[in-house]
């Protein structure tokens, strides 16, 4: 270890210096580089290399056993005409949208309710609202299968009692997507509500009092104080739910037995990728899918961050 390092960490100058000095600095901090190295080594081997390798694979035809055959951009050409794939892209965005909108709305409402000054036993509410997030997604989906199950489903029982016609949850594309969204909503609404609640509670009371003295109405202080402070937090949760939403796999895989349901409405992007790679053994094709997905997610994130920048500059 670097026992002879007398320079206290924070005092090293940030001025650009000569190469000799830099080399000396690097040498002096050998152990520090060692401290941070595990992540970079793991990323090289299990992160960067697979990505580059998948670019190479996407130009091959390979079932994982025989020799690879270079086929140029044929995989990508096939993919552009693959209706099932584009349906999966559409499905994923639909599910993400339904889930995110409803979840955002509900968790904001819950956060505001919980933030009211007279709510008692706040920690009990918080605890129960967080519970859904603690179950594993697999266990949750297996359980929710009973709720949605076609003839004897629990939800259908209750809505029939309320006088509504039963819904064929898992056999129509629309309701299958709603079912998947409901699983996500159950899982994440409380979680996000607690994040918003923490945001609301970080606003000091003095701010509202000062606004009141200045003659602001409750509505005004809501739009001028509460919303601006909450906005970045909401955006953070939207980003998180986008990252998660683009990767939806477990729910449709278990609800539909992996085939995306009778109308294919539950086929998501990652489930499609998984099936092509590990059921059909089309490794080259699956790699092409991975890259197209990456580009789609990238464009989507860029659009997302553009919107965020516009919103936060307001």
């Amino acid at each position: 270890m670097d026992a002879a390092a007398p320079t206290p960490g924070k005092e090293v100058l940030n001025i650009p210096v000569k190469k000799v000095r830099t080399l000396h600095e690097i040498k002096k901090h050998t152990s520090i580089y060692l401290f941070i190295s595990p992540f970079y080594i793991l990323f090289l081997v299990f992160g960067l290399f697979p990505i580059l390798f998948s670019l190479f694979l996407s130009l091959q035809s390979w079932d994982g056993l025989d020799t690879m055959k270079f086929i140029g951009f044929k995989n990508f050409q096939m993919l552009l005409q693959d209706g099932d794939f584009w349906q999966a892209v559409g499905n994923t965005f639909t599910i993400w949208f339904e889930q995110t909108i409803i979840m955002l709305f509900l968790s904001l409402v819950i956060a505001f309710l919980l933030n009211s000054a007279f709510v008692k036993l706040r920690s009990v509410w918080r605890f129960t609202y967080f519970l859904p997030n603690v179950t594993s997604l697999v266990a949750q989906t297996v359980l929710f299968y009973i709720f949605f199950s076609p003839k004897y489903g629990t939800i259908d029982y209750f809505i029939q009692k309320a006088g509504v016609a039963p819904i064929d949850w898992l056999n129509s594309n629309f309701w299958l997507q709603i079912s998947i969204a409901i699983i996500g909503i159950w899982r994440w609404t409380g979680y996000n509500a607690l994040i918003y609640l923490a945001g609301l509670q970080s606003i000091p009371d003095e701010l509202y009092e000062a606004a009141k003295i200045d003659g602001a109405t409750t509505t005004q202080s809501f739009f001028r104080i509460t919303i601006p402070i909450l906005r970045p937090i909401v955006l953070f949760t939207v980003i998180m739910s986008t990252i998660g939403g683009m990767q939806i796999f477990t729910e449709p895989q278990i609800l539909t037995g992996g085939n995306g349901g009778p109308g294919g409405g539950g086929m998501t992007m990652v489930l499609y990728l998984y099936n092509q790679a590990f059921s059909n053994h089309l490794f080259g094709y699956a790699s092409a899918i991975a890259w197209v997905l990456f580009i789609i997610i990238l464009i989507f994130s860029l659009v997302n961050s553009l919107i965020i920048r516009r919103l936060s500059s307001k």
Binding site: G47, F49, S54, L57, L273
Partner: peptide, 10 residues
């Protein structure tokens, strides 16, 4: 998931 297939191959 970008590296899912190659990770498996590794």
């Amino acid at each position: 998931q970008l590296g899912l297939v190659p990770s498996f191959i590794i």
